[in-house]
């Protein structure tokens, strides 16, 4: 006799019929939205206060997240990194919270489905070329032609394959790591539910952060490659 697996999504009538990765992504997005709205409202209320509050408050927490993210991005991409804080930060927060939701009982992390990870990586892929065209105009296509014009029939397929491998590897890596981690935790829970899954769950915490960082770093590398002005 199998009883139905409990998920938080089954509590909501609208989300019950959706596949688990979609409903969990929606729940995580709503949680993120609530955090952002609360933080923003506190920010508005205390806009005149320059002196930071002595205790750690919710506002400090949100400020800390944003500051850490933008510091990482500006450190990696240089002074132009400020333009990319929005997209890279959004993706990073979404992926991080989805990864971490896998550690909460009743949540299936949305990132352990290929559809979610490829949605993220294809966003990066599209935005890379959008930023490239915005920066260079039509000359952006020169990056694909290579150093000499007579090499173009050889270089264009090579570059295309190289560019297509990027979103595929981004999405596949995230999916593989999170699925593997989630499966290992589930199997250990099935074998010995007491104490034994703890180190694996700790590893899961580590994997969640590292994979988010990897995704951020690689998408930043792709963005800065698209807007760089040097010859290949």
């Amino acid at each position: 006799m199998e009883h139905e697996v409990f998920t938080w999504a089954s509590l909501f009538p609208f989300l019950k019929k959706l596949p688990p990765h979609v409903s969990n992504a929606i729940i995580v997005s709503v949680i993120l939205l609530i955090i952002v709205v609360l933080g923003y409202r506190q920010l508005r209320r205390t806009e005149d206060e320059i002196v930071p509050e002595p205790k750690i408050t919710f506002r400090n927490f949100v400020e800390m997240i944003v500051e850490t993210l933008s510091n990482i991005i500006v450190d990696t991409m240089g002074p132009r990194g400020k333009e990319f804080v929005l997209i890279v930060g959004t993706l990073a927060l979404f992926i991080l919270f989805n990864n971490l939701s896998g550690l909460v009982p009743g949540f299936l992390p949305a990132t352990d489905n290929v559809n979610t990870t490829f949605a993220c990586s294809l966003t990066v892929f599209m935005m890379t070329h959008y930023y490239g065209f915005r920066e260079h105009g039509i000359k952006y296509l020169k990056q694909f032609v290579g150093p000499f014009w007579w090499l173009a029939p050889l270089m264009v397929p090579i570059e295309l394959i190289g560019h297509m491998a990027r979103p595929l590897s981004l999405g596949l890596r995230l999916f593989g790591n999170i699925t593997g981690d989630h499966l290992v935790t589930a199997i250990f829970f099935g074998l010995v539910p007491l104490m034994v899954p703890l180190p694996v769950m700790f590893l899961g915490l580590f994997v969640a952060f590292v994979q988010t960082f990897v995704f951020m770093l690689l998408s930043m590398a792709y963005f800065s490659g698209a807007i760089s002005h040097e010859e290949h």
């Binding site: 394959i161 297509m164 491998a165 590897s169 770093l217 690689l218």
Partner: peptide, 20 residues
């Protein structure tokens, strides 16, 4: 850490290039 990540991404990307 940064260089580790960028080098470790190389393997997957190489394999996927051939596959694509």
């Amino acid at each position: 850490v940064k260089s580790l990540i960028s080098y470790s991404s190389l393997g997957l990307e190489m394999g996927l290039s051939v596959a694509i």
